[in-house]
Design a protein around this nucleic acid. Structure first.
Lengths: 190, 190
DNA sequence: ACCTGAACACCGTTCAAGT
DNA sequence: ACCTGAACACCGTTCAAGT
C-alpha cells in the first residue's frame, strides 16, 4: 500500500486490477466495472490492462473464478465426516442453505459467475478448476446418500434454481430464510 | 410492409421497435440489441425510441414480457384435465421438459427474462402479468398433486436451475435431452 | 404528438511511442 | 516487458428544432 512499489507500478498490476474489479463489482455493481474505470481506480492508464488481460471478458472470467473459489469454501465448510446417511442428508441440506445464502450475500458476483455476461466467452483454466471444485464438493455429499447418476445434478439444480430465482427477484422470501430454504429443498428425495 | 405507412412513420413504431428488438435478440444476440441499432433497423432516427420507451431497459423489459408470454404458452400446452394424481405427475414432468426445452431453444431470450440485465430495473405491468401467468400455470399442476406450501417453489426451482445451468454452459447434456430432463426432475418428490 | 440532427459523456480496443 | 496518450468506432441519453 505504501512502500516497495513504483518500479513501473507496484509490480503486480494484474492482481491489483483483479482486486479492484472484484471490489467494484461487489460494492458498486456490474455496470461500474468498466475497464477504463478499473484502470483509473488502480492508478494506471486505460490501455494498461491490455498488457495483462486479452480483453474485458478475460478480466471478468478471472473475477468469476475468485467467486467460485469463495463458493467452494462456503460449501466445503459444511462437509464433515458422518456416520449415517441421515447425517449426510443434513450436511447436504446445510450446503443448500450455504449455496443460496452465498448467492444472496454476493448477488452481483453470483450473477457474474453464472450469468450471460460470461456464458459465451472462453473460460480460463482457473475458472474451470474453481467452478468444477465447487460442484464436486456438493457432489461428494450427494454420493454419500445416493449412488444414482444425475442425483447430484438434481441437487445442484434445485439449489441453483432457488438461488437464481431469489437473486433475480422472481421469488421474494418472507419469514426466516434458512427455514424457507430447508422447506423448499426438502422435496428433493435422493 | 408496403402500403398505408409514412404518415409520420407506419403509425405503430412502438410495436415495430419491439419486434425488431426481439428478432435481433434471437438471431444476433443481446450485444447487438442497442437502441441505436434497433432504431436504424426499424428505419428511424436514434432518438425516436425515446418517444415510446423511457430508456433502453424499458424496451428490454417489454421484450422479456413477450418471452414470458411464449413460455406460458409452452407450459399451458401441457396442461390437461386428468383423472388421477399419477396422470398429473406426468403432466408436471412434461411441463418440466417444456420449460427446459424452451430455455435451450431461446437461450438469449431466456437469459433476458431472468438475468441480470433486467433484474434491478422496474418491471412493467405487462411483464409482471406474463411472468406471473407462466408460474401460475406450473403451480396449477403442482396443486393437483400436493397441497403443501412451497411445493410449487420447489418444482419451479429444480426446473429453472436445470434450465439455467444448461443454458449458461455449466452442464452439458449428452444423450437424449428429454430423457435426461426426466431423470433429473424425477428426484423431486411432491 | 411524433420524429430528426447534433451534441455530450461515456464505452472497448488498438497502436505508435516512450522507459 | 510494461505502460502512456491519442485515436477510432461505437454506446445511451438529452434537447432544441422541425412537421
Amino acid at each position: 500500500m505504501n512502500t516497495a512499489k513504483r518500479t513501473y507500478h507496484h509490480g503486480d498490476l494484474r492482481n491489483a486490477l483483479l482486486m479492484t474489479a472484484l471490489d467494484t463489482l461487489v460494492t458498486e455493481g456490474l455496470d461500474k466495472v468498466t475497464l477504463r474505470n478499473i484502470a483509473k481506480k488502480t492508478g494506471v492508464s486505460q490501455a494498461a490492462p491490455y498488457a495483462h488481460f486479452k480483453d474485458k471478458s478475460a478480466l471478468l472470467v478471472e473475477v468469476a473464478a475468485v467467486g467460485f473459489s469463495k463458493l467452494k469454501y462456503a460449501l466445503s465448510s459444511e462437509l464433515k465426516e458422518c456416520e449415517s446417511t441421515e447425517e449426510y442428508r443434513y450436511v447436504l441440506s446445510n450446503m443448500g442453505v450455504a449455496y443460496v445464502e452465498f448467492a444472496i450475500e454476493n448477488k452481483a458476483l453470483f450473477r457474474l459467475m453464472f450469468g450471460d455476461v460470461i456464458a459465451e466467452f472462453p473460460k480460463s483454466e482457473s475458472y474451470s478448476i474453481e467452478a468444477n471444485a465447487a460442484f464436486v464438493c456438493m457432489e461428494g455429499a450427494v454420493q454419500k446418500i445416493s449412488g444414482v447418476d444425475f442425483a447430484s445434478h438434481s441437487a445442484w439444480s434445485i439449489v441453483h434454481g432457488l438461488a437464481s430465482l431469489i437473486v433475480d427477484n422472481r421469488i421474494q422470501v418472507e419469514g426466516d430464510l434458512k427455514t424457507y430454504i430447508r422447506e423448499v429443498t426438502k422435496f428433493l428425495d435422493i
